[in-house]
Design a protein around this nucleic acid. Structure first.
Lengths: 89, 89
DNA sequence: TAATTCGTCAACCAAATGGTTAAATATAGA
DNA sequence: TCTATATTTAACCATTTGGTTGACGAATTA
C-alpha cells in the first residue's frame, strides 16, 4: 500500500501520515520500499509477537522473575523509561 | 502494595507516581483499595489479555476481517483515535 | 518539455504529557 | 491532643506530541 493510499481514509495531511509511517518504520511495525516516486508500505505481521507474549505474562510472574524479565527487556532494548511493572500484594 | 511502596524505587515525586497510578486504575490495569490512610494497589493480571490477543492477530486478518475487528473494538470501547491498522500489499 | 503526482522537509503552533513544589486532607501513632 | 504519615489537590512549567502550511525535489505522465 502506497503512502497516499494509507493517508486516504484519514482526515489529516499527507505530511502527518508520512510522519506517522516514519515512526512505525522505526518501530519495526511496517517496512517501506521505494519504487520510483512511490513508497510501498507493508505491515510486519510478526512485529508485535514479543509484546503480545509479554502482555500474556503480565502479572503472572513471581517478583524475582519480573526482575529477570526486565533484564531480558533491557538486553533487547525494549525497556522504556516509563515502564511500571510492579506486582502488588 | 501501598502507593509509597510503589513510588519508592523511582526517582520522582510521590505526586507523580500517584498521578500515574490514577491513570493505571482508570485504564483497568490495577485496582486500588483504601484502608485507613493507605491505598493498596493490586495488579490485574488479566487486564492485558484482550490487547495481547489483538497483537497476536496483528496483520493476520484479511482486510474485511479487520473492519469486523474494528467494529468489535469500537463496541468494547477500546478503539482510540490513533489506531492505524492498515495491512499493506 | 511542462505539468502533475508523490512524499519529505522546514518552520510553526496548540494540545497533551509528565514532572515539580507547596498546601491541604484524612488517618494513625505517640 | 499533637505530631507524623499517606495521599491528593492546585498551580505551575518544560518537553513532547501531533498536527498544519508552504516549499522543495524526484519521478511520472501528458
Amino acid at each position: 500500500m502506497a503512502v497516499t493510499d494509507v493517508a486516504d481514509p484519514f482526515d489529516m495531511s499527507l505530511t502527518a501520515v508520512s510522519k506517522h509511517l516514519t515512526i512505525l518504520t522505526k518501530a519495526g511495525l511496517i517496512q517501506q520500499e521505494k519504487r520510483g516516486r512511490v513508497k510501498w508500505c507493508k505491515l510486519d505481521p510478526t512485529a508485535l509477537q514479543e509484546a503480545s507474549l509479554w502482555m500474556q505474562s503480565f502479572g503472572q510472574f513471581e517478583a524475582v522473575d519480573l526482575d529477570g524479565f526486565e533484564s531480558f527487556l533491557a538486553d533487547q532494548g525494549l525497556l522504556g523509561q516509563d515502564s511500571l511493572t510492579d506486582a502488588a500484594d
